[in-house]
Design a protein around this nucleic acid. Structure first.
Length: 419
DNA sequence: TCTGGGGTCCTAGGACCC
DNA sequence: TCTGGGGTCCTAGGACCC
């Protein structure tokens, strides 16, 4: 059996840990740049606010005092997530952290009669120790555990824990689950299935396997297997991420190539620093830019360029220089850019870098590596060392975040201020 | 006026080869 | 008027997730 532990309305719940006065009130958390609603309390869901609603459409509620909005505060959410996960990890032999607010616990080998009590204990412990409410769904496959956790969250009677351990319980749950709520069935596939008369997870699970194999792709077939109790979604814990992306929308549109270069340098430097943090190096650097797709009155342009490095690298100079090289090949005058980003890929371990016979730059490369090491040591202790091509000022300048809460748990100044 | 960011995997189609 | 077959590799785009 698997247990899926899911934090309820996670970002909102994190904000409420330090703002208990907002318990029971409508709260939302916004995406970067205060763009969209990405987390909602039950009360704001009840007001009809949908996931990914552009903030300007609900801003009047905030202005009228009926809704509290927060800019996203990832330092806070990441820290609380770590605390939740460490409590879970202590309780079971194996845990698979699936996202910032979800984890699968592997329960094989445990006495089935002890599982309900264990889950209830975990719900209480996380709530008491961290302050975040969680729901737990237990089932034979991950897709079914997802459905069980949804029931645990939705129906008060479950008190946060739903165990789907018999075929009868499974059938009942599937017939109550709309097809578009199934894990793996998204907004494109759901209408396709509904056209074929499939309205619930149960309708889908009862179709013959041959029908699914002939009409759908392999991922949908896997979902079908999982709904029928056959484990297919295996552990996908990749040792190393295959790509790392840093991108942002801008508060205003940018036309000036020099200003864009500064942003792209920042994104590339951030990617390089993430690579070093996890001991990786990359040999491909992709730069991309977007114009504002919502402005139909403006010309649109979504270019990207990938630069391959002879030898995988993770120092700031080389990654930034490759990103800017890509930028120069795609930049065109006359467009207003709203977003840009850098992706590094073809990632390997930094201490197993494949060198090239034709690498005449080895000496320079070593020097750059040493410089990056020095930059890291400064930047971790608060100072900010950066390349001349990066922007002066704070990294988040030019990104809107009008409703940011303090860094309650990770920034000493904020902690002192709160106390 | 204002519309997120960071990932993974699959597939169709084009380029190229013999 | 007629214009092969089969294979691999790469890439862009589309689907999904949180």
């Amino acid at each position: 059996m698997y247990a899926l532990v899911d934090c309820n309305n996670f970002f909102v719940s994190c904000e409420r840990v330090f703002r208990p006065d907002l318990e029971g009130k409508p709260v939302v958390v916004l995406s970067n740049n205060d763009g969209c609603v990405v987390s909602r309390s039950n009360e704001s869901k009840a007001m009809g606010i949908k996931m990914c609603t552009p903030f300007y459409q609900v801003k009047h509620f905030v202005d009228g005092g009926r809704l509290t909005a927060f800019s996203s505060n990832y330092a806070l959410y990441g820290d609380l997530s770590g605390r939740v996960m460490s409590i879970l990890a202590e309780a079971v032999p194996e845990i698979e952290i699936y996202s910032i607010d979800e984890a699968f616990l592997h329960l094989e080998g445990m006495d089935p009669s002890g599982i309900p009590a264990l889950c209830r204990k975990l719900v209480d412990k996380v709530r008491t120790w961290v302050g975040v409410p969680v729901s737990i769904g237990v089932a034979p496959t991950k897709t079914l555990a997802k459905i069980a956790s949804h029931f645990a969250k939705t129906y008060k009677g479950y008190k946060g824990v739903c165990i789907m351990d018999t075929p009868e319980k499974r059938c009942k749950a599937l017939s109550l689950t709309p097809i578009d709520e199934v894990w793996g069935i998204g907004r494109r596939l759901a209408p396709k299935l509904m056209d074929r008369g499939i309205r619930t997870a149960s309708d889908f699970a009862q179709r013959p396997r041959e029908w699914v194999a002939a009409n759908m792709n392999v991922n949908v077939l896997r979902t079908w297997e999982e709904l029928n109790g056959v484990r297919c979604v295996e552990e996908e814990m990749l040792e190393r991420r295959q790509s790392i992306c840093t991108s942002r929308s801008f508060a205003d549109m940018i036309e000036d190539p020099h200003e864009l270069q500064l942003r792209i340098s920042d994104f590339a430097a951030m990617c390089a620093s993430k690579l070093r943090e996890e001991g990786s190096a990359a040999s491909q650097v992709t730069t991309f830019m977007y114009t504002n797709r919502f402005r139909e009155d403006l010309d649109q342009y979504y270019p990207s360029a990938t630069v391959c490095l002879e030898v995988a690298a993770n120092n700031t100079q080389e990654i930034v220089s490759a990103a800017l090289k890509g930028f120069r090949t795609i930049f065109r005058e006359g467009y207003k850019y709203k977003k840009a980003g850098v992706i590094v890929s073809e990632i390997t371990s930094a201490d197993a870098i494949q060198t090239s016979m034709f690498d005449f730059e080895e000496e320079k490369r070593r020097k750059h590596d040493r410089i990056s090491k020095v930059m890291d040591s400064f930047n971790s202790s608060g100072s900010l060392l950066r390349l001349g091509t990066q922007r002066p000022g704070h990294y988040a300048d030019g990104i809107r975040s009008d409703f940011r809460s303090p860094l309650y748990t990770t920034d000493l100044d904020d902690i002192i201020e709160v106390r």
